[in-house]
Design a protein around this nucleic acid. Structure first.
Lengths: 134, 134
DNA sequence: TTCGTTGTACTATTGTCGTAGTACAATATG
DNA sequence: CATATTGTACTACGACAATAGTACAACGAA
């Protein structure tokens, strides 16, 4: 059972809860903390854990279902789906994307720095979290 | 002329515009793109540039003023203030900041993932950058 | 079959976000 | 002085976010 639950949600963050949760779940899958076939918490259970409304969780699950990230079966649960072949192949690596990653990274490091984290600390933080799921 | 180009905000991002703009301005100051005493664009001008409502810009300026980041003078403009001494010293490491870093990390990795970069690739990219930057 | 669980689908309510428009106060400039 | 510019304050409106509550549909298991 994938019971490392409680995704990172911050009600004080101005980003909508549903957006935070969707990111957190995709993050968990991308880092391997949630593997293919793993069951996600039930709508009601996760709502209780995160102290948010069940409707919000249901909205996220429905969106992830629509995106093909998870598969939901009534009366059973919600499970991580195998990545679609299209999702994997339709991504060319271009110089423009490298550039955008650099910009993204710079902004990320700067924002973390505003929170009082040094670049080295941030890298270490990320390294640990990405490692968690393998 | 102060700031020619606009700040980086995205209406498609679920994060509220005012939050994006506030972050962008703080970011510009933190990275030195906006120096102490520099004038920010006027409320109306920035609204036109970013194609958002003037009220939204005004809300951000008011918040930054309240936070002591900028100084506003009617009929004149809005200017970057000198950092308050308290602002510098009161940066203790708290659990809330750790939580914010986690949320920030997830947003970052999610965005990078949409560019086609896996979490492991992103971490490696960052690791190299940080090492080079020093 | 019955029962409980899970996802889904509604209604209703509250608060926030963003826009549009107007008016006003303070300042610089001619 | 008058005028334009800048920030501020306010109303109103539509859309969305989040909540609470209820009911229903599909499935597994007893």
């Amino acid at each position: 059972m994938a019971m490392t639950n409680a995704f990172d949600i911050d009600a004080r963050d101005p980003t909508p809860l549903y957006a935070q949760l969707e990111r957190a779940i995709r993050f968990a899958i991308a880092t391997g903390r949630l593997g293919i076939g793993d069951q996600l918490p039930t709508v009601r259970q996760l709502a209780v854990n995160l102290r948010i409304n069940a409707n919000t969780v249901a909205k996220v699950y429905a969106e992830l279902e629509r995106a093909g990230v998870v598969e939901t079966r009534r009366g059973v649960g919600t499970f991580v789906r195998e990545p679609d072949s299209k999702t994997l192949t339709s991504r060319r690596r271009t110089a423009a994307q490298e550039q955008r990653l650099r910009v993204l990274s710079e902004r990320f490091l700067a924002e973390a720095n505003m929170l009082g984290f040094s670049p080295a600390e941030v890298v270490e933080h990320l390294r640990r979290r990405v490692r968690e799921g393998e």
